[in-house]
């Protein structure tokens, strides 16, 4: 896969160099898809999302809890999800996120292209 330098959002200056891979578009895209998929079954707060991903993927995927929030906020700004303060069953205040129509659309696209790419890679691996 070719990673174009221009797409790297490297806004830092040379003195502050250091490539931070978790910020690349590709991985952000994956995290975004995971979050969208998780929210498909209903609104959840951040901790719930982290827990859900861990549980459902049988511990194969781990979302670093801290890096979840910048992603959530970015997606909220992009109007893919909608955030709202609610009270948890245990009586705590937490911010719940739900999919918007746009978010659902984006999820459908992402699932489709993910399936295509992974099938392609799978076939490639099988062939070799």
């Amino acid at each position: 896969m070719e990673i174009s330098l221009d797409t790297l959002p490297l806004d830092d200056y040379p003195s502050e160099l250091g490539l931070d891979m978790k910020r690349t578009d590709q991985l952000q895209g994956a995290l975004e898809m995971v979050i969208l998929k998780t929210l498909q079954s209903g609104a959840k707060h951040g901790f719930d999302i982290a827990l859900h991903v861990q549980t459902v993927s049988d511990g194969l995927l781990r979302v670093e809890e801290g890096s979840l929030y910048p992603a959530l906020h970015r997606m909220e700004r992009q109007k893919l999800i909608d955030g709202e303060w609610r009270v948890t069953p245990n009586g705590r205040r937490a911010r719940y996120y739900a999919l918007t129509d746009e978010g659902r659309e984006r999820l459908a696209q992402a699932e489709l292209s993910w399936t295509t790419v992974s099938q392609g890679i799978q076939r490639l691996l099988n062939f070799a």
Binding site: F47, Y69, H73, R92, R93
Partner: peptide, 16 residues
Amino acid sequence: EWREEIESHLALREEW
């Protein structure tokens, strides 16, 4: 608000 959200996450995790 952002701070509160993080605090809330920590509290939920602590509870769990």
